[in-house]
């Protein structure tokens, strides 16, 4: 009997060990690292001080980075919602062969590396040699290249493109749960197409939109490849900042503090918004 009870734990031990080895231990080490001291000539000193945290919280440079990260993630979330929700709605209304084809078109990009997709944007808009910029300039539409590289706009556009499938999928899953007759029920009661969407469909898929938003926000705020390519070292966000501290300045403790703060902020935001969504919709949808 005792062997039986122990079996589940024994069986999950390898996975737990792996999880501990590659997630918990490095995380704990990073947290510990964030309290260590560092100097140009002495390197890392394994002491416990609040120097890095003090710097992160008081230096306006870091405040600006985090504020930018937050702003970009929020704009990306809004942009994916504004474009992704109608996209999912239209997708859901398509008939059988087209629905499958367009679902593939939307999800296909997930199969391509983020780096390749972001580089695509760079090729199209990168300075005066970008294809779109060149074409628009030769047609006389614009006189100087559209600013895209090293701009927040560029980062938002590229991230929204990269993360769009997550929003579409979340909303689509919510749409699938709608009663197929519910729109007809509203129409029969005299509602026009706009009213049906606003009063009947949107409120019911709101939990889906919000959970899609949480996913997109978290991924956008912690994204590395896209901000690294579009912003480089000129326009940094929290993740590229942490990277820079680690690999260029070699100030590991400070980089660790930035990374841990980003993680904590994200956890707080995700947990808080999930709570809010649950509380708001528990009674209605359960």
């Amino acid at each position: 009997m005792r062997a039986m009870k122990a079996a589940p734990y024994l069986l999950s031990t390898p996975a737990l060990l792996l999880f501990g080895a590659i997630v918990v231990v490095p995380l704990a080490m990073t947290v510990a690292l964030s309290f260590h001291d560092w100097g140009q000539y002495k390197g890392i000193e394994p002491v416990s001080i609040l120097k890095n945290w003090h710097e992160v919280f008081t230096d306006s440079y870091f405040l600006e980075m985090f504020w930018r990260t937050f702003r970009i993630a929020l704009l990306v979330t809004l942009l994916t919602a504004v474009l992704g929700v109608p996209e999912a709605y239209i997708l859901n209304r398509m008939r059988s062969p087209w629905r499958g084809i367009f679902l593939l078109v939307i999800l296909g990009p997930l199969l391509i590396s983020v780096v390749a997709r972001t580089l695509g944007w760079a090729l199209l808009f990168g300075g005066s040699s970008g294809i779109v910029n060149k074409a628009l300039m030769s047609m006389g539409v614009i006189s100087s290249p559209l600013p895209f590289m090293f701009t927040e706009t560029g980062m938002v556009v590229a991230l929204a493109h990269v993360l769009m499938p997550y929003m579409v999928l979340a909303v689509w899953a919510a749409l699938q749960r709608l009663d197929p007759q519910i729109e007809n029920a509203a129409v029969a009661l005299g509602a026009g197409p706009f009213t049906v969407v606003r009063r009947i469909v949107l409120p019911q898929i709101m939990p889906g939109i919000l959970s899609g938003g949480v996913i997109v926000f978290a991924l956008a705020a912690s994204a590395f490849a896209t901000p690294a390519i579009i912003g480089g070292r000129r326009l940094k966000v929290a993740s590229t900042l942490a990277y820079d501290e680690f690999l260029n300045t070699l100030n590991w403790p400070l980089g660790a503090a930035v990374a841990v703060l980003l993680l904590l902020a994200l956890i707080a935001i995700v947990v808080a918004s999930s709570r809010l969504v649950e509380k708001r919709y528990a009674q209605v949808f359960g």
Binding site: D179, N184, A185, F285
Partner: peptide
């Protein structure tokens, strides 16, 4: 939307995000 017919669907198709009173009031509101 202009036929003014009352329909009861097999699945009822009630609006889950509205109270009973809001469900019933919807047609009058329209």
């Amino acid at each position: 939307a202009k036929r003014g017919l009352g329909i009861v669907f097999q699945s009822y198709a009630l609006f889950p995000h509205m109270t009973v009173a809001e469900n019933v009031a919807f047609g009058l509101e329209m």
